[in-house]
Design a protein around this nucleic acid. Structure first.
Lengths: 347, 347
DNA sequence: TTGTAAGCGTTATCAG
DNA sequence: CTGATAACGCTTACAA
């Protein structure tokens, strides 16, 4: 009777995989020939080729991509640096990036930073040590700006979703945040609203500023501005605060992202107000929950998938040829999704 | 006047980065010494070390991780194979996997398959060519079973979230699907329900079968079963269908995931039924939208993050030592989240 | 049509 | 404390 542990131990001994030399030796040819049979880079006698192939199968030989990469000087892998993969916006973006990478035979390393600078540093190290051929950089932490700057002239990097101030000389793919704000402004104006509460994102983010600017310009009414942090709790806190201080005094709320809009929604409901009868609410992003909530949220659809896909495709266009990309900006269209959370103001 | 294109072209010429030999030459020492200064693997004269370090900085030398990996025989990168990163369940799982990998200094390659067999094959190739040291495999397409089987004895692979039938001899981390089903069964029974509609996932999935089995055993009432595909549309279609055929004839609906539960919710609402007054609805997964919907969804919280984290940590425990992992199963606890979509049956 | 030999950039071994 | 030298596993001139 063999006891379990023994069997497990025996299985766990990894025996060294066959190398190109092993194949060559068994097939009675040189490593060069094996290489050429597999790559097709130069003609090989059909008899020889057949023999080599059969040995390859018999030994289960698979070329070590590491050695190949070392020789070739590139790994066919790029990185995607994002703050939080569990945020559906970034998950969609990642999907687009992964699709674009896959199309060109590239792998994608997920660099999830949680806004942690150390973590971001470690991932940026991968590009400096040339383990990845390039990086798609989607709004990391603000302090990373200087480091990015140093890298950008020397390594292939593309900015996705968020511009980094002072880093205009790069490949950039971003949603048209300003138009998004404008669409919301026009929508609320047309409904008859004249005074709205605007919950913005952090001031440092250009995307957030662009949304606000577009909105203010198009709305042309009174705008009460409060700064949030893109989290649900901050939307709740800001609205509940105003409600407590003696009234909202606005007929609509425009939150710079859906999560804050949901926080606002909850605060309004808790105060006994009805959406959209008493107050209209608009978000930004169009995350999955937006169409599922009650009422479904009027929001601006951001092409997260396309942002990721475009940034990556652009980047790879240069990476393939071993070039550092020039400056170029792609602004992707957004779309207003009018749902149930907006209506003309009461009275 | 230099015109833009020229500058761009000039910048795009990548000049070859410094190697350890360059540093050695400039510092007047051997590559060996440079290596040791950087790794600390053996003592080096402080003067020499200082000189080397200064040259390293001056030349901006960063060791090529590729060469290091080739020599070491491992890349410190593993893969995470999932069907769809834009599904919040897998995004959470990915986050857990990424965290666990990062903790041990490993990188994580995102292998998003979209249930595409070719795509899955290409990613599995990465492990065979030893570009990655291991793979966390989260419910790929059914046809991949045979291929997995061949790989599992030879390469480090861990199964996350979903068991693959016939592949018991492996590292497995999964949620306690059966207990989840049981909790729902008990909950509905205690509320007084005696006849429920159960929307299951695809029959082939063990997780789905386990949820159903646990539910049926605990509920001990009448169960009308319909097979869905985990998508929102299928929940809607199945419920709307029954509603059309002359009545639901059940006081509650248990969907095997939240998405189908939302589909059911919509169908019920469209038929003029109120949840939970007329019909109770329960989901499974506890995706973000579950707590945001109206009414908030009673559901089973799956520890997606922990599943990803556990599977990955387990895998790495063996990968670190260059071993193929033995069989071992980790079943993670689930939790019933009672929210607003369930209530005692009417009358 | 095929083989030899020189890289790719590290680190480990062994010697001094 | 330091340095040659030989791997790691592949590709590709160059040569035959």
């Amino acid at each position: 009777m063999t006891r379990e542990p023994y069997r497990a131990e025996r299985q766990s001994v990894v025996r060294k995989p066959a190398s190109i030399k092993d194949v060559a030796a068994v097939a009675g040819v040189s490593p060069t020939t094996v290489s050429h049979v597999l790559s097709g880079n130069r003609p090989v006698n059909e008899q020889t080729a057949a023999r080599v192939r059969s040995v390859v199968n018999r030994l289960g030989y698979v070329p070590a991509s590491l050695a190949r990469s070392l020789q070739a000087g590139s790994t066919s892998v790029i990185g995607l640096l994002i703050p939080d993969i569990s945020n559906t916006f970034f998950a969609e973006l990642a999907k687009g990036a992964e699709d674009a990478a896959h199309d060109l035979g590239y792998g994608l390393i997920l660099c999830n930073t949680e806004f942690d600078t150390d973590r971001e540093d470690r991932y940026l190290g991968m590009i400096r040590s040339r383990f990845i051929d390039g990086m798609v950089y989607a709004s990391g932490s603000p302090p990373s700006r200087r480091r990015l700057e140093a890298l950008m002239g020397k390594f292939p990097i593309a900015l996705a979703d968020e511009e980094v101030e002072g880093l205009e000389g790069a490949l950039i793919a971003t949603a048209d945040h300003e138009s998004g704000g404008r669409l919301v402004g026009e929508h609320l104006r047309e409904l008859g609203h004249r005074r709205v509460l605007m919950l913005t994102g952090p001031r440092a983010l250009k995307s957030s500023a662009a949304r606000a600017a577009g909105f203010v310009r198009a709305f042309r009414g009174e705008v009460v501005e409060r700064v949030g942090d893109f989290k649900e709790a901050s939307g709740h806190r800001l609205v509940a605060g105003l409600l407590g201080e003696g009234g909202l005094d606005c007929t609509a709320v425009f939150a710079a992202n859906d999560l804050m809009a949901f926080g606002a929604l909850t605060a309004l409901r808790e105060a006994g107000l009805s959406v959209p009868r008493d107050v209209s609410v608009v978000g930004f992003d169009d995350i999955r929950a937006a169409s599922l909530s009650h009422p479904p949220l009027t929001t601006v659809h951001q092409p997260a998938y396309d942002v990721g896909r475009t940034a990556t495709a652009q980047l790879l266009q240069y990476v393939c040829r071993g070039e550092v990309p020039p400056a170029s900006r792609h602004t992707l269209p957004v779309e207003l999704k009018v749902r149930g959370s907006t209506a003309p103001p009461a009275r």
